[in-house]
Amino acid sequence: MTFAVTEHTVKTARHTTGYLACGAQAGPLLIFCHGWPEISLSWRHQLPTFASLGFRCVAPDLRGYGRSSTYTRVEDFAQEVIVQDMLELLAALGRERAVWIGHDAGSMVVWNIAAHHPDKTVGVASLTIPYLPQGFTLDSLVPLVDRKTYPEAEYPVGQWDYICFYHESFDRACAAFDANPRNVIKALFRKGNPDGKGKPSRTAAVRKAGGWFGGPPFPDLPHDPDVISEQDLEAYAAALTRNGFFGPDAWYMNYNANNTAYSRRAVNGGKLSMPALFLHGAYDYVAETMTSKLAEPMRRDCSDLTEVVVKSGHWMAQEKPAEVNAALAMWLARKLPDYWPGEPKGEMIDTP
């Protein structure tokens, strides 16, 4: 038995958000925010699981993705406007607060909601990307690089070189992804490899290589079934082909221009007091938090922080869904017992 996942849309005067929903309408609300270059589908393993526990689960397509509005100006993908999209979604759902759960770029969104709108936040959880109170910018990231893996003379910005590539060659970056979104997904969505520990990530030499894989075209690799099925692959590819990569890539162009100024306006100086959960990817070598100092600002500024290590790569919710679900459920039960639902209610459907 599993709960049905249904498609919905919220339209306001400024933006349209498509989202998936699952679980009893009156259940305590969990909102899941995906990363780059994903869509709401990336939470397919979490929505029915937490619906079965009695939660109301919602996963939006974030700005520029899937069934949500996209735009033609880089500045339309700043964090402040994306956070506003989520607050409009929350209001349309008839709720005052939610537990916000994010991955990758979606983590930046949920951390910003927690920092700027603690009154809208019961708790906040992030997969792979820790909280950076000063904003997810190169100025914040580079001092935290593990210089044993990335000697400064050879890798001045460490694994974050790909962000510089966006800033210096944005049109080239978008064109390389747009040339074959299906191959992009197959090349990127791969399980974690323990053999990569201590070795520089591919993202540390993107400018030198002229692109992620030395420039277009992306290699035609077999998809990794431990992360996505053929059906999932087609859904991702269709969404990215329809919308293009300008919107998803434009998120990176607002890091320094908007996030730092925005971060300065956070409530309580950016310090978070609500329960927070961070899931480390043991084999995530871009958002590497196991040996670097990347998680230290989060530990300093989150007063009620729980940390769990998941033996996965970057695409954690899809590669290791059972482990992710267990960590989230345990945190919700222990840290937010009053938010834990009673008996699950709602329409259920039989599955094979």
Score class of each variant (00 low, 15 high):
278 F>K: 00
211 G>N: 07
261 A>W: 02
253 M>G: 02
300 R>L: 11
277 L>M: 07
265 R>A: 15
284 D>A: 04
273 S>K: 11
214 G>V: 15
215 G>N: 01
207 R>E: 05
266 A>L: 08
287 A>Q: 08
256 N>V: 15
238 A>C: 00
273 S>A: 09
211 G>W: 12
293 K>L: 15
211 G>Q: 09
246 F>E: 01
298 M>I: 11
194 P>N: 02
212 W>C: 06
245 F>P: 07
268 N>S: 14
193 N>I: 09
233 L>Y: 10
203 T>I: 04
197 K>E: 15
236 Y>C: 07
202 R>C: 01
223 H>C: 01
241 T>A: 11
192 G>F: 07
284 D>I: 06
228 I>K: 00
203 T>P: 03
272 L>M: 06
244 G>Q: 05
290 M>V: 14
231 Q>D: 15
268 N>T: 04
285 Y>S: 01
214 G>C: 09
301 D>A: 02
273 S>M: 07
209 A>E: 11
202 R>G: 14
253 M>F: 03
271 K>A: 15
237 A>W: 03
216 P>E: 10
274 M>D: 02
287 A>S: 05
302 C>F: 03
265 R>N: 13
214 G>L: 05
280 H>G: 00
225 P>D: 06
291 T>E: 12
209 A>M: 12
295 A>T: 11
265 R>E: 13
276 A>H: 06
258 N>H: 15
284 D>P: 02
263 S>F: 02
225 P>C: 04
287 A>L: 12
248 P>F: 11
197 K>G: 13
273 S>C: 08
258 N>D: 08
243 N>H: 09
196 G>K: 00
279 L>N: 02
219 P>Y: 01
219 P>C: 09
264 R>C: 11
257 A>C: 01
202 R>H: 13
288 E>Q: 06
243 N>A: 10
247 G>K: 07
217 P>I: 14
286 V>K: 00
218 F>V: 13
255 Y>M: 13
280 H>E: 12
216 P>C: 12
191 K>Q: 12
275 P>Q: 03
266 A>V: 08
252 Y>G: 04
285 Y>R: 01
296 E>N: 11
201 S>W: 12
285 Y>L: 10
285 Y>W: 11
294 L>T: 14
236 Y>F: 15
201 S>C: 14
239 A>S: 15
271 K>Y: 03
191 K>W: 08
285 Y>C: 02
296 E>C: 00
292 S>H: 09
259 N>F: 13
244 G>K: 06
275 P>G: 05
208 K>S: 13
283 Y>F: 14
239 A>M: 07
259 N>V: 13
240 L>V: 01
234 E>K: 09
233 L>K: 00
219 P>E: 10
200 P>D: 11
212 W>P: 05
276 A>M: 05
222 P>V: 12
231 Q>Y: 03
231 Q>S: 12
192 G>P: 05
206 V>S: 03
199 K>H: 13
282 A>E: 15
228 I>N: 01
272 L>F: 04
271 K>D: 04
293 K>I: 00
270 G>R: 04
280 H>M: 08
291 T>A: 15
253 M>W: 03
251 W>V: 05
205 A>M: 13
224 D>H: 06
241 T>C: 08
233 L>A: 04
283 Y>V: 00
289 T>D: 00
203 T>Q: 08
253 M>V: 12
188 L>M: 14
218 F>Y: 14
295 A>P: 09
204 A>Y: 08
